[in-house]
Design a protein around this nucleic acid. Structure first.
Lengths: 221, 221
DNA sequence: CCAAGGCGTGAACGCTGGCTCACTTCTTTC
DNA sequence: GAAAGAAGTGAGCCAGCGTTCACGCCTTGG
């Protein structure tokens, strides 16, 4: 029975697989997920396009493996930092700062995968988000200047607020299919989160967070 | 000089343009931006594909116009609600609740445009986000159960927190190219925002928010 | 050194989807 | 009703990109 993979070959195969994933990661870091295309990846990894398919059954699986790796590494770092903290609250703080520090430090490496790519195609969506952030930022600024909120970096607060609103209610993570009261509760919870984040200590007591009625659509569809 | 557009024709043209944009919006609402393709849009609008190009020079412009419309409408609603409020803080609260209520009420209509589509292709990214949210949610739960945070709906808080972290630092809205101290400040500001949002009244006093050193990369690229 | 068979290759295939254009149809003006 | 030209049409073109496959090379076991 001729040919059985020797230890050396196994290593070489693993190295190639690794090279392919590295190439994919580099491309993602430089130009977003959309830039992870088989031909560029293979060229960058120094192999032929067909070779990629010896290691990954499809492009989706390649990307999946890449994201999985990165996620494991990043979340692992958060977890380690949190577990080393003395209590639940500082664990939370440690997780957050770890995330934040790593996001900024290796932004292009790891986090291109969760952030929107700078794709020309969806400039439009970014414009919407930006407009939202701008509007909210103006309001926050006004409240700060009126002395109703603590001073803060609007360039951080406005996007963070926008992100919380998007992800908290309409993003893919948000649980949908809530009933009527569930909806009201969610809106309240999110509003509370947002206002507290901005520095309102007692939004409820001040009557800022109240029940909301979901308005009907203004335009058909 | 034969043929000059009569008033009636102008109206018909405007109506067609509107029909095309409505069709595009409906498709976006039902299946995400990726589903806004010329052929389906034209079919839905009851015109030929070529006709679409009589009204919009390219698909990107069509999508752009659509998003612009929606953004104007939604942000307009926020602004009106805010302007009707008695003070800056309740203006802010009004803007947020208006956003939230509309997002939930007409989610499929308007906000499919800023949320990620349920595209099968980028399942991977969602997985990352979901893992992040799960990890953070666990930590928040632990802190709540330890009595260190006020009770809250984790299903809202975790995604909101995740969104704030993503958009606040690595999203396309976040100002990049910060210097070293700017980075530290941003991390601090975001951590403060996040912890306050979760209900920590005095994160700074408790020593939870401290200076951070951005760690080096753990893996090349 | 030979047989066996995995591994590497890259040109080519096929599908998808944006866009065009030669042609028809409709509208206005005279 | 005829000329002029705008508006509508949709089959087809073209580019990008994921995927395949027939072939040659290399490694292994005998």
């Amino acid at each position: 029975m001729p040919y059985r993979r020797t230890e050396n070959v196994v290593r070489r195969l693993a190295a190639r697989r690794e090279a392919i994933m590295q190439a994919a990661g580099a491309l993602a870091a430089e130009a977003g997920i959309a830039a992870v295309q088989i031909t560029p990846v293979s060229r960058r990894a120094g192999v032929a396009t067909g070779t990629v398919y010896r290691y990954f059954p499809s492009k989706d699986e390649l990307v999946g493996a890449l994201v999985h790796d990165v996620a494991e590494r990043e979340i692992g770092a958060m977890r380690r930092a949190a577990d080393a903290a003395p209590g639940p609250l500082s664990a939370l703080a440690a997780a957050i700062t770890t995330y934040a520090a790593r996001a900024l430090g290796s932004r292009k490496l790891a986090f291109a995968l969760i952030a929107e790519p700078a794709d020309a195609a969806d400039d439009a969506r970014l414009a919407f988000r930006a407009a939202l952030a701008a509007e909210l930022g103006r309001r926050v600024s006004a409240a700060v200047q009126a002395g109703l909120l603590p001073g803060q970096d609007i360039a951080v607060a406005a996007p963070a607020l926008t992100g919380a609103l998007i992800e908290g209610l309409i993003g893919p993570l948000a649980a949908d299919a809530r009933d009527e009261t569930g909806t009201r509760d969610a809106v309240q919870a999110l509003t509370l989160f947002a206002l507290r984040g901005l520095g309102v200590a007692d939004a409820r007591a001040r009557g800022l967070v109240v029940g909301t009625t979901v308005p009907g659509r203004e335009r058909g569809g």
